[in-house]
């Protein structure tokens, strides 16, 4: 169960609309390494996870990703409101605009809609946590790339916060993998799948 709190995890206060930046940053909403995929990946992996500590980490990190999804939505909203048709045409945002106007819809930067195929649930704690470690690094790289492409300090400040969180989550997932391995056969971590073999 979740309850909503009427604030962002980190404030988003963008003064200048910028359709081009919105078209890039939307990758972190609906792209393969975006926040929507991250939240769904961790929250769905929890069910068969046999260790309480790791269930807690997946729950709390997955819930934080929902906050990040909301922050990316806020960025897209603030970057695309008050745009003139001329600005929309010039920036290349017209291709998104024709389908969604300035509504917030999860696509990647090329316009491909969010796909559940982009997040993985393998049902094996070692495999799933390795997936999660890679996911955090891929999201970190995407934020690094966004920082190369975007100039507005109001936007960069928020992107830097989100990038930092990927690094913290990577650390916690590393510890989670250690906890899983401490519970397995030291001579062969792959001797059985603790989420399936009893």
């Amino acid at each position: 169960m979740w309850s909503y709190e009427k604030q962002l995890q980190y404030p988003v206060r963008i003064k200048k609309p910028d359709a081009k930046a919105a078209g890039i940053i939307i990758a972190q909403l609906g792209g393969p390494d975006g926040e929507l995929g991250a939240a769904m990946r961790y929250l769905n992996q929890r069910f068969v996870m046999p260790y309480h500590s790791v269930i807690a980490a997946l729950t709390d990190i997955g819930s934080e990703e929902l906050n990040h999804m909301e922050m990316i939505g806020a960025i897209i909203y603030q970057l695309t409101r008050d745009l003139s048709i001329d600005e929309i045409k010039k920036s290349g945002f017209d291709k998104y605009f024709v389908n969604h106007t300035n509504g917030v819809y999860p696509v990647d930067a090329s316009g491909f809609p969010f796909s559940a195929a982009e997040f993985a649930v393998k049902g094996d704690p070692v495999a799933d946590l390795n997936e999660d470690l890679a996911a955090e690094q891929k999201a970190r790289v995407t934020y690094d790339n966004i920082l190369r492409l975007v100039d507005d300090p109001d936007v960069k400040d928020v992107i830097r916060f989100l990038r930092e969180r990927e690094i913290v989550h990577y650390q916690r997932f590393g510890e989670s993998l250690q906890i899983v391995q401490d519970n397995l056969d030291k001579k062969n971590f792959y001797a059985f799948n603790p989420a399936f073999d009893r």
Binding site: K6, P11, K15, K16, E70, G73, Q78
Partner: peptide, 8 residues
């Protein structure tokens, strides 16, 4: 609502 910043 949290995304409705009007500072601009």
């Amino acid at each position: 609502w949290p995304w409705q910043y009007k500072g601009g």
